[in-house]
Nucleic acid binder design. Structure first.
Lengths: 390, 390
DNA sequence: GATATTTAGTCCACAACATAGACTAAATCG
DNA sequence: CGATTTAGTCTATGTTGTGGACTAAATATC
């Protein structure tokens, strides 16, 4: 609980500080690192030496920063050795990616499968095969994969690695970490959460400030990123935007309530007759009035729900992802209108509304990125793992 | 930004760990501290010695923990030297309190004044007089006051110490820290936020887990406490529960929107003809149907807004404070009904609904408590201040 | 073109802090 | 009364960062 600082953790902390600085502020010389971290040049040199030895950083050319003086050697994160595996189980596909320490996507593979038709055990077996193939390919690239996270479309218990209920998959109480055995640390997380992190590291990124990322699918989830980390709430179920009440007397929702956002702006509300979002986009492009009206309705409801979310969570930016990304041109107007009307008078600035820049792979990439984030936040633990093969 | 660990900050960090442990887990022997912190007995002894010398801890009797062996000396937080000042400006009163390091309330004074009638400058002058008197009394008790926080009824900019708009006071862009000059560090914060912290430290406390504290007044604010700290959002305006949309087509609100919770459950909605909450309680006790119906309506609306808040913020517990504390017996039913209906099916556990245990002084006490919290989180800084009179 | 100046990075003696284990102190058990 | 157990202190030691002297490599100045 209370974490005391000792000599070894002091060192680990300083390694993390240096690596974090390299991660956030690009290539830096040792002198610049000493300045920004407040450590002495001597200390920085030693720490950088360790990081280079561990394959987590490399020197990359010289830089003349000022006008005069000896040029410095730029040091940057190196992705040539350390990597992470991101996995995703979704309704109609499996996906896996390998991302290296510099957050470069090295491998990405998607497999279209109808996972509703298969049993959870079969799905997990298939994911295991995909993961094993990816690990082999990663080894071929000389990468050492430090860990993996599985993205799941439903509320998860991260401590047990299980999904309580994933209605879209038809799963109940399935433990993924128990069934999936891979030769590395494995965790699970919610797809909407990881999509938000995917946007942070592989999309518009830090320019968004603190943002709320909306994942529209059949359900509607959201992930709030504050200071580069997810806000999860007490039990990890924060960000359930789909069941925000838009109209207390509205239609019944599968959650037991009435008038939830999902009933107005979920995929089933936009496509009551079924079908693909791509078809809806085609009808919208053709200017079909019924399609435009449906988006108008969904956008207004989404605007009301997001107004509420802004009042409670206070983000800088709102990112629309999932099905709302292709529909952005048609829903953004009503959403912005609702937010301006309801927030404009009280707040100096209404949060900006932008479209997600990562596509369907957001959650898969976010999963791998989260593993990388953990390594950067505590390189000492990983260093031990690599150098000490006990 | 990136905070490196050096020898001095290692020491400061360990002082904070020991003091934090004493704060959370009551009186402890040096041996017990060594066990829980992971530090050696030698180190703990040195740290405890420093804390005792600084007047932040004291030895208090011996304890026989096990069956055999030498009994240990219990060490606990001491409030005899270090204290903090909490201040509050509200619509119809000023308040000040002095709380010591062990979070004992040593002084508390309230002054009934109609602050809407006076100019901001006059109000602040009067608060300054109250604060100066409190500081003199604290000095008389041998207390050294380390800092102060002013609670204000409106959104504040904590970096400049100013309120942008406090509609209930009729204030616009008033900087309190600039106008109020006291011989100690002074900060400002929002009343609803500080009331939540007041509940944490002077009310039901840590038994609540992560909780959302609702401050019902003319407006309705809320403060979310996660892991013993306030969730503030990107700009510090999180928790604006009063403007959560309960019915998109509802009555217009002063915020520019329509159907905000405030219009259904704020003080003006419960008492459309004006008057005091105490009178409403009397009518409720008498069983007056109109009064009961008003609470029913307010409770249902509050239940809808809280359902939404739970979906987005995921707290363990919801605490009703402000005007909802005396009205609790009449509003809690409808609130719980709404939450059970709308959340019961999706969640294993619907958050518990409890009444606030701190009264009107919650924000004032929370203000002082927040200063104490800062000292406990970084005793090193305070130690320097005391021992080094530069 | 030689020298001064500036900046980067390394080296070495030193200081700060925590550690490990021996030691003393004070209780209960047999 | 001695053996055992637990609390707390003392001393030598180890790890880590510091500060300043030093070397290295560039530009500026004359």
């Amino acid at each position: 609980m209370a974490q005391a600082v000792r000599h070894d953790s002091m060192r680990a902390g300083n390694l993390a500080v240096v690596l974090g600085e390299l991660d956030r502020h690009g290539p830096l010389t040792r002198a610049a690192l000493a300045e920004t971290t407040g450590l002495t040049k001597t200390t920085v040199s030693k720490l950088v030496g360790d990081l280079i030895e561990a394959g987590m950083a490399v020197e990359s050319g010289t830089v003349r920063d000022g006008e005069r003086g000896r040029p410095g050697v730029a040091v940057r994160l190196s992705g040539h050795r350390v990597a992470a595996l991101g996995l995703e189980i979704n309704v109609d596909y499996l996906a896996a990616c390998v991302v290296d320490l510099s957050r470069t996507v090295r491998l990405l593979r998607t497999q279209a499968v109808d996972n509703r038709a298969a049993s959870p055990a079969d799905v997990i077996t298939r994911l295991g095969e995909l993961a094993t193939a990816m690990l082999a390919d990663a080894a071929g690239l000389g990468l050492s994969v430090a860990g993996a996270i599985v993205a799941l479309p439903g509320p998860v218990d991260r401590s047990t690695g299980s999904v309580h209920r994933a209605p879209n998959l038809g799963w109940r109480d399935v433990s993924v970490t128990e069934s999936l055995s891979l030769p590395l640390p494995l965790l699970v997380d919610n797809e909407a959460n990881l999509a938000a992190l995917g946007e942070l590291w592989f999309g518009s990124g830090a320019s968004l400030g603190d943002f709320l990322h909306v994942s529209g699918e059949i359900g509607i989830g959201a992930g709030l990123v504050v200071d580069g980390a997810l806000f999860r709430g007490a039990h990890g179920f924060a960000g359930e935007l789909g069941h925000v009440v838009v109209a207390p007397d509205g239609p019944a929702c599968r959650c037991g309530g009435t008038g939830c956002l999902e009933r107005y702006a979920g995929q089933d509300a936009l496509l009551p007759a079924g079908g693909e979002i791509a078809e809806l986009v085609a009808r919208l492009r053709a200017g079909e009035p019924a399609a435009t009206a449906a988006c108008e309705r969904a956008g207004s409801a989404l605007g009301v729900a997001l107004t509420t979310a802004v009042n409670l969570l206070d983000p800088d930016t709102i990112v629309l992802g999932g099905i709302f990304a292709p529909l952005f041109p048609w829903v953004s107007g009503p959403v912005e209108k609702a937010m301006r009307e309801r927030l404009g008078q009280m707040r100096a600035r209404v949060p900006a509304l932008v479209v997600s820049r990562v596509g369907a792979d957001g959650a898969t990439l976010g999963a791998a990125g989260q593993v990388i984030q953990r390594i950067i936040a505590d390189p000492g633990a990983f260093l031990l793992e690599v150098t000490d093969p006990s």
